[in-house]
Measured scan of single mutants.
Amino acid sequence: GTEIELESKNGQREHYTATSEDEARKIIEKAVRRGIKRIELRGASEQLIRDMQEIAKQIGLQYRTDGSL
């Protein structure tokens, strides 16, 4: 699965493990709508990382991946 670590603007951290790319995408989209400061992805697919970079650029988000592409 993909591990997703979120940090909201007030510094609250949340951790999710998505079993599918679809689920990961839903978690990320929800977080973005809620207003999130930072997202870290571990074990994400190349496609998901590309999507994440696109989203991050659009809304000026900090993100990090573990680089295991």
Rank of each mutant, 00 (worst) to 15 (best):
G1F: 13
G1M: 13
G1W: 13
G1N: 13
G1L: 13
G1D: 10
T2Q: 04
T2W: 09
E3A: 07
E3S: 09
E3L: 11
E3T: 08
I4N: 01
I4G: 00
I4P: 01
I4F: 02
E5N: 11
L6I: 15
L6N: 01
L6E: 01
E7H: 11
E7W: 08
E7D: 04
E7K: 04
S8R: 12
S8W: 15
S8N: 13
S8E: 12
S8M: 14
S8Y: 14
N10I: 06
N10K: 06
N10R: 06
G11E: 02
G11V: 01
G11K: 02
Q12R: 09
Q12L: 11
Q12Y: 09
Q12G: 12
R13W: 12
R13H: 13
R13K: 13
R13S: 08
R13Q: 05
E14D: 08
E14Q: 07
E14M: 08
E14K: 04
H15D: 03
H15R: 11
H15E: 05
Y16F: 11
Y16S: 02
Y16A: 03
Y16G: 02
Y16V: 08
T17V: 14
T17A: 07
T17W: 12
A18N: 13
A18T: 09
A18S: 09
A18D: 09
A18L: 06
T19W: 11
T19D: 11
S20C: 07
S20T: 12
S20F: 04
S20A: 04
S20I: 02
E21G: 05
E21A: 08
D22A: 10
D22S: 09
D22M: 10
E23P: 01
E23G: 03
E23K: 03
E23F: 05
A24R: 00
A24S: 02
R25C: 05
R25H: 05
R25W: 08
R25Y: 08
R25D: 00
R25K: 08
K26F: 05
K26R: 09
K26Y: 07
K26E: 14
K26A: 12
K26P: 00
K26W: 06
I27Y: 08
I27R: 01
I27M: 04
I27C: 04
I28H: 00
I28W: 02
I28M: 06
I28N: 00
E29F: 08
E29G: 07
E29Q: 10
E29L: 10
K30Y: 07
K30H: 11
A31Q: 04
A31S: 05
A31T: 02
A31L: 07
V32H: 02
V32L: 14
V32G: 02
R33W: 03
R33P: 04
R34A: 14
R34P: 05
R34Q: 13
G35C: 10
G35S: 05
G35F: 04
G35E: 05
I36F: 05
I36V: 12
K37M: 10
K37R: 12
K37H: 12
R38L: 06
R38A: 07
R38V: 07
R38I: 06
I39P: 00
I39K: 00
I39M: 06
I39F: 02
I39A: 02
E40P: 00
E40Y: 11
E40A: 13
E40M: 14
E40H: 12
E40T: 14
E40W: 12
E40Q: 12
E40S: 13
L41G: 00
L41P: 00
L41R: 00
L41A: 01
L41Q: 01
R42E: 04
R42F: 11
R42W: 12
G43E: 03
A44C: 08
A44R: 01
A44P: 04
A44N: 02
S45R: 01
S45G: 04
S45E: 02
S45A: 02
S45Y: 03
E46P: 09
E46Y: 02
E46D: 10
E46H: 08
E46G: 04
E46M: 05
E46L: 06
Q47M: 07
Q47H: 05
L48G: 00
L48C: 05
L48V: 03
L48H: 01
I49C: 11
I49E: 07
I49Y: 09
I49Q: 12
I49L: 11
R50W: 07
R50C: 09
R50L: 08
D51C: 11
M52G: 00
M52Q: 00
M52R: 00
Q53S: 09
Q53D: 13
Q53P: 03
Q53M: 14
Q53L: 11
Q53N: 08
Q53F: 12
E54L: 08
I55G: 00
I55E: 01
I55C: 13
A56P: 01
A56R: 02
K57T: 09
K57A: 12
K57M: 11
K57S: 07
Q58R: 12
Q58A: 12
Q58E: 14
Q58I: 11
Q58K: 14
Q58T: 12
I59V: 14
I59T: 12
I59D: 05
G60I: 05
G60Q: 05
G60F: 10
L61C: 15
L61K: 04
L61H: 04
L61A: 10
L61S: 03
Q62V: 10
Q62D: 15
Q62M: 07
Q62T: 05
Q62W: 04
Q62P: 03
Y63W: 15
Y63E: 15
Y63V: 15
R64C: 15
R64K: 14
R64I: 15
R64W: 15
R64E: 15
R64T: 15
T65D: 15
T65R: 02
T65F: 04
D66G: 04
D66A: 03
D66V: 06
D66L: 02
D66K: 02
D66S: 04
G67N: 04
G67H: 04
S68M: 07
S68T: 09
S68Q: 08
S68P: 06
S68F: 06
S68V: 08
L69C: 14
L69D: 07
L69I: 10
L69N: 07
